[in-house]
């Protein structure tokens, strides 16, 4: 059931995930989201709180809970549309073909089982190993995740481990069934910078040795720059810019991407930072047009009407890139 050489491993097409607010209104937390992850490739999905990046990840895994639901789109993984599968078919994919690592390993790991038991159970559930063999494999995976003294650690409970070790255990758990795609949602955000560097190194090594594809969700542009091949920038539920990470960060096409890069410490001379005015809109308060329009210094009258569609950027290296901005649409009064 392996994908043929040309078809991407994962293709999300026009995904729309809505949440029903207490007042009865439906609002789209992820809207018209399309993205592609090829085998062995790393896509960075960046955005601030409320941008829709985590909802996109949960939608791919079909883990969106009511009052949220997927109302539109296709999620093609290895040739099959995950939106058409039933729960038992999904269970054979989740954890087995698609692994996931969450920000808070303390929440994702079961507090009443040892680390070793949890990895062994995953192997057993997916029919990969049983009994003593599963326990031995669990220790090997902890070793692969650079957990020191894995024989002893396998017998410990999540609360006995430090934050960095817990995240390593979480990675061992996510990889033990040898998935072809791993989704990581802010895998290093709760960690110290030196521990983050070690975890990123570990992900890099395992990605290379196992040929993994990675969907890396983060708010940290530095992490994306160091880890990803391509980047998709989300804002207000939509992907506003996408392309090879080096090109996008060197010549950002969307005013939001440009603003985000400019407001990083160290990117301006002197002490003041270049701030983006205003605040990130919360769910249900997205404006009718481009979600970024109220904060955008380059906004055109058309930006407040309906959200722009996806086009190739104008005036920058455009190979493999797309942007959702009227500035790049000549007919709308953009640069063209």
């Amino acid at each position: 059931m392996n994908s043929t050489s040309d078809a991407p491993l994962l293709r999300v097409d026009r995904l729309r995930t809505v949440f029903t607010l207490p007042d009865g209104r439906d609002v789209a937390a992820a809207d018209d989201v399309s993205l592609v992850v090829s085998a062995g490739e790393t896509l960075g999905l960046v955005g601030e709180s409320g941008s829709g990046k985590s909802v996109t990840a949960l939608s791919i895994l079909r883990l969106v809970m009511p009052p949220g639901r997927i109302t539109q789109g296709e999620i093609i993984f290895d040739g099959r549309d995950l939106l058409t599968l039933d729960e038992s078919e999904l269970r054979a994919i989740r954890g087995r073909r698609i692994g996931f690592v969450f920000q808070e390993p303390m929440v994702a790991l079961n507090p009443v089982y040892t680390i070793g038991q949890q990895i062994a159970e995953t192997l057993t559930v997916h029919g990969l190993a049983h009994g003593r063999a599963a326990r031995a494999r669990a220790i090997e995976w902890l070793r692969a995740a650079c957990v020191p003294d894995p024989e002893r650690r396998a017998g410990e409970y999540p609360h006995q481990l430090s934050g960095g070790l817990r995240q390593r255990a979480m990675i061992a758990l996510a990889l033990c069934a040898e998935p072809s795609l791993v989704i990581t949602d802010e895998p290093t955000t709760a960690l110290d910078v030196t521990v983050q560097a070690e975890i990123l190194d570990l992900l890099r090594e395992l990605r290379a040795s196992l040929g993994l594809a990675l969907l890396l969700i983060t708010h940290d542009l530095g992490v994306v720059a160091e880890m990803a091949d391509r980047v998709a920038v989300m804002y207000g539920g939509r992907i506003v810019e996408e392309g090879p990470v080096a090109d996008v960060f060197k010549t950002p096409a969307h005013p939001y991407t440009r603003g985000l890069l400019a407001c990083l410490p160290g990117s301006a001379d002197g002490r003041r930072l270049t701030a983006i005015a205003g605040t990130v809109p919360s769910l249900g308060q997205f404006p009718p047009g481009c979600a970024f329009a109220p904060r955008c210094v380059d906004r055109l009258p058309v930006c407040d009407t309906i959200p722009p569609g996806v086009t190739a950027p104008i005036g920058v290296e455009s190979a493999g890139r797309s942007v959702r901005c009227y500035l790049h649409q000549p007919a709308a009064g953009g640069r063209g």
């Binding site: 709180s49 407001c263 003041r272 270049t274």
Partner: peptide, 14 residues
């Protein structure tokens, strides 16, 4: 705070 909001508060402090 979100990255795009951090810069505002840092500038205000200065």
């Amino acid at each position: 705070l979100d990255v795009s909001v951090q810069a505002q508060v840092v500038n205000l402090l200065q």
